[in-house]
Structure formats: structure tokens, C-alpha cells
């Protein structure tokens, strides 16, 4: 589930409010968006990919809350990790352009 919005990083662009498929966030009049309906989060990680400044963290468990904190995330370098893997962001090469999936299909015989 979505667990953290980093107030330090967030630039209040409200992109996460717009793109979340299950309408988890609410726009705040002044300030960063609010995680208003955490239990509706479908753990799809799309908000992380669309946040321009890596201010969001989605924990993999879709049922429970891990309680991980922003400080722990910073320490472990976890913010923005998925966006980097997918190759989104300036100067990165999108994973879509690799032939990984083609090779994967060839190897697995599907």
C-alpha cells in the first residue's frame, strides 16, 4: 500500500492525485496531497512512476501497513528505486527499449 509522501521532496504538483487509478489521494488546498483512502490502494506503483521528484513510496503488501518511515526510506535509498529500474526520468533508458522481454520469452519457451 501507499505509505509515504515525503513532505521534503513533494512539489505539490498533484500528479499523484490525477493518476491514481483507485482515487487514494485528495488534493489539499495548501500543501501536499493527503493519503485519504489508504485501504483503497491497489498497490500498482503507478503513482511512484508518475511522481517527478520521487516523493512517494508504495510498500508491496496490499493488505497490511508496514509503518516504514521516510527516514528509513532515505537511509535505505528506496525512494525512486522503481522509477530508476523502469528507466523513466531524465537521461535514463526506458526498460521498454531493452530486448529483455523478447529474450525472456525465447528462453522460457512462451
Amino acid at each position: 500500500m501507499i505509505e509515504v509522501i515525503s513532505a521534503d521532496r513533494c512539489i505539490e504538483c498533484n500528479q499523484c492525485v490525477s493518476v491514481c487509478p483507485t482515487n487514494v489521494f485528495d488534493r489539499a488546498d495548501n500543501g501536499i496531497p493527503v493519503i485519504a483512502r489508504q485501504s483503497d490502494c491497489q498497490t500498482c506503483f503507478m503513482c511512484e512512476l508518475y511522481c517527478p521528484v520521487d516523493a512517494l513510496y508504495v510498500a508491496p503488501d496490499s493488505e497490511g501497513i508496514t509503518g516504514i518511515t521516510e527516514a528509513e526510506l532515505e537511509e535505505q535509498g528506496l525512494l525512486g528505486g522503481y522509477r530508476e529500474k523502469v528507466g523513466w526520468g531524465k537521461g535514463r533508458q526506458p526498460v521498454a527499449s531493452h530486448d529483455f522481454m523478447v529474450k525472456l520469452a525465447a528462453r522460457a519457451g512462451f
Binding site: V86, W88, V95, A96, S97, D99, M101, V102
Partner: peptide, 22 residues
């Protein structure tokens, strides 16, 4: 603009679509 990978002969390999990019 979808960046399909290419085979050795430069032919695009259009067998998979990465969801977010697509």
C-alpha cells in the same frame, strides 16, 4: 515513439509492450 528493441538485422521486435510506456 514506442522504443521496440531490434534484432541483429535491425528489424523491430514487436512482441511485448511495457505497460507504463505503452
Amino acid at each position: 515513439g514506442y522504443p521496440f528493441p531490434k534484432d541483429e538485422d535491425g528489424r523491430p521486435l514487436r512482441t511485448h509492450l511495457h505497460g507504463p510506456e505503452y
